[in-house]
Computed example of a mutant assay.
Amino acid sequence: MLRKAMMIRLNPEKMEEYKRLHADAWPSILRQITACNIRNYSIFLREPENLLVGMFEYHGADYDADMQAMADDPETQRWWALTDPCQSPLESVAEGEWWAPMEEVFHHD
C-alpha cells in the first residue's frame, strides 16, 4: 500500500461550487476511484489560504497504469471539466502536474 498526498489552490470565487460538487459526488466517479485501487480518499480545505490537500491510500500493483485508466475515463474527464476550473496549481509544480505531490515525513498508525 502507498499513501499519497497532494496540494492545490482553490479559487475563492469557486469555493461553494467545489464544495457542492464534492458533497454530491457522482456515483460513476466514486466507482472509478475504487476501480483504480484508491481507498480512504479525503480532500481537506485550509482557509483563509484556500489550499486543498488530497490524501489517499493506493492498494494496487501499478499506480501509473491505474492513474492513466482514471485519466482516460470519459466520466472522469467530464468531472474534471467541472472541478479543474475551481483550482489553481501551485507555482512550484513540475510541468504536466496539476496537484502538487507532497512528501510524507511522518506517519503513525
Rank of each mutant, 00 (worst) to 15 (best):
101 P>I: 08
12 P>F: 02
79 W>C: 00
85 P>I: 03
100 A>H: 12
18 Y>S: 00
17 E>P: 00
15 M>K: 10
72 D>T: 00
42 S>K: 06
46 R>N: 11
45 L>R: 04
62 D>K: 13
54 G>P: 06
90 L>P: 07
103 E>Y: 11
11 N>L: 14
43 I>Q: 08
26 W>Y: 12
16 E>R: 05
88 S>H: 13
88 S>R: 15
48 P>D: 03
83 T>N: 05
64 D>I: 02
35 A>T: 04
81 A>V: 07
30 L>W: 07
24 D>G: 07
36 C>T: 15
109 D>Q: 11
53 V>W: 09
4 K>G: 01
64 D>K: 11
91 E>N: 10
88 S>K: 14
92 S>I: 14
72 D>I: 02
34 T>I: 00
49 E>L: 13
46 R>Y: 15
58 Y>L: 08
38 I>E: 04
47 E>C: 08
96 G>N: 09
39 R>P: 03
59 H>A: 13
33 I>M: 14
100 A>M: 15
8 I>A: 01
8 I>V: 05
58 Y>P: 05
66 D>V: 02
62 D>C: 11
106 F>I: 04
15 M>C: 08
33 I>F: 12
51 L>K: 13
50 N>T: 00
28 S>R: 11
102 M>G: 07
95 E>N: 09
45 L>S: 06
8 I>F: 04
104 E>M: 10
51 L>V: 09
61 A>S: 14
40 N>D: 14
101 P>G: 09
34 T>S: 13
104 E>T: 08
89 P>S: 13
84 D>C: 02
49 E>W: 10
93 V>D: 08
70 M>G: 02
85 P>V: 02
40 N>T: 03
47 E>K: 13
86 C>H: 10
32 Q>H: 05
102 M>T: 00
98 W>N: 09
22 H>R: 04
34 T>K: 15
75 E>P: 03
84 D>E: 13
37 N>F: 10
42 S>P: 00
86 C>Q: 06
105 V>C: 12
95 E>S: 14
3 R>F: 13
31 R>E: 14
36 C>P: 03
101 P>D: 10
46 R>D: 09
94 A>L: 02
95 E>K: 10
6 M>V: 04
80 W>G: 01
49 E>H: 06
28 S>T: 11
54 G>I: 07
7 M>Q: 15
60 G>D: 06
89 P>T: 04
49 E>Q: 14
63 Y>P: 02
57 E>Y: 11
76 T>V: 05
53 V>S: 01
17 E>Y: 05
104 E>H: 06
47 E>Q: 13
41 Y>L: 11
41 Y>W: 15
29 I>V: 01
44 F>C: 08
69 A>I: 04
51 L>T: 08
15 M>T: 08
46 R>C: 10
81 A>N: 10
63 Y>G: 07
70 M>Q: 09
78 R>E: 03
77 Q>V: 05
104 E>K: 09
54 G>N: 10
4 K>V: 05
69 A>K: 15
92 S>M: 13
